[in-house]
Design a protein around this nucleic acid. Structure first.
Lengths: 234, 234
DNA sequence: AAGATTGAGTGAACAGCGTTCACTGTTAAC
DNA sequence: GTTAACAGTGAACGCTGTTCACTCAATCTT
């Protein structure tokens, strides 16, 4: 590690921090190349020593945000041993709070079309790995809940052969849960995602002025369905 | 209606059509002022006779897309008399198909943070009204389903006082349904929204390669919960 | 019908954008 | 100690949304 490498690493971190700051204060549109450069006392072309393009900067920022969100949720305590019901609440509420506090970042992570991993496009980018780590958080929790006290789940013939086959392929990520149980876990994840998306994107304003109570009720319902003893909403 | 006004209306329609074309082919970023102008054989400043700003053009485009989506769904047959279960399937599948066929438009309509209607900001813009008309589609259908054959719904004390009060305020839009039934209707709407969002934004790729079967199973589940007799997935 | 007025459309210009290139110094390597 | 690699700069290119002075035709007024 030369002194030049240190300097480089420090500058790179400064750039990312500046980009993140601009994202928070003014949304994605505020992350201009010259704006970031100005923030770290550099000229725009200098940033090309650190990122091949403006889009690459944003991509790396996405990866960083995924990691930051993941560690923030882990530090909240929604991982490891202990009361799994409480962990679910911490995870769900933590994600919701983060999304509401950082709507711009949330839209960047979860409200942007991500290229499908169909083709030869390699998915081993830092962004994809960071997204996987984040997704594993929920998968692990669901698996832990199920293995501690299995909740009732639909039989294979209720889901149809196609879906059952797809879910069976995912069993490894859910510690060998049966397809029906994975289906329910995915259902709950989809519901939480939909709730937070609707609230952040303002789609709930059409019906409810404040989504907090609604979210609480939904979360209680989900916890109940997974066999957890959760505090009933007032 | 002068001949000049006719010309103006025609040009305005051409501009909107061009913007829509560019949105489809290249996403929101493709709707440049000069690009639109080039498409209708005009110069960029000329567009300022029709829109006060570039953002206003996008806003009007959003309103148009809402109306277009609404009429497309209505024409699909998910309104009026008839089998309500079939109408639910038409509405849900129609919305999903539209979203998958026009991901850019979908992201513009449902994946963008809309300003909350808290303050003095007037909500009588064409965009808001168009969004309300779209939302009414689902509200009306849920109300029709419930009034034809009421499905079981949670009691008020299960939802909590805050949520019950908020839902009661919405009863007018649901033709006098009780809060618990409105809660369930909103839940199903949130689930459909979450499903489509996850699929369009590529968030389901992390778990399922193809979301069609999953969506079908979810829709069947929702129809069942609303007391409709729906075809079970294979 | 003639004159005054409105309005659509143009071309030039401005500031800012992402990006490239030739060019400095400074730092690391042989 | 010389050489090569590298961070950083300033100028430039083509692009963007936006403004302004200007032209020309269509409408309204008298």
């Amino acid at each position: 590690m030369n002194r030049r490498d240190e300097q480089r690493a420090a500058t790179l971190a400064e750039i990312k921090a500046a980009a993140r700051r601009l994202l928070i204060s003014g949304g994605v549109a505020a992350i201009g190349l010259r704006a970031v450069a100005r923030e770290v006392n550099l000229t725009a072309p200098a940033l090309y020593r650190y990122f091949p393009s403006h889009e690459a900067l944003l991509t790396e920022l996405v990866a960083d945000l995924y990691d930051e969100l993941t560690t923030a949720l882990v530090e909240l305590g929604c991982e490891g041993e202990g009361d799994l019901g409480a962990q679910l609440y911490l995870l769900a509420n933590g994600l919701r709070d983060w999304a509401l506090a950082h709507p711009a970042e949330f839209a960047l992570l979860f409200g942007t079309t991500v290229p499908s991993p169909d083709a030869d496009d390699h998915n081993d980018t830092p962004g994809h790995q960071a997204a996987m780590r984040f997704g594993a958080l929920f998968k692990e929790l669901v698996a832990a809940i199920w293995h501690e006290k299995p909740f009732p789940y639909p039989a294979d013939d209720q889901l149809g052969t196609v879906l059952t086959a797809q879910l069976t392929d995912e069993a490894a990520h859910f510690h060998g849960m049966p397809p029906g149980a994975i289906y329910l876990g995915l259902t709950y994840w989809t519901r939480l995602y939909g709730l937070i998306c609707m609230e952040v994107f303002g789609q709930l304003h059409w019906v409810l002025p404040d989504a907090a109570a609604y979210f609480e009720a939904q979360l209680y319902e989900i916890g109940l369905a997974m066999g957890l003893d959760c505090p009933q909403p007032e």
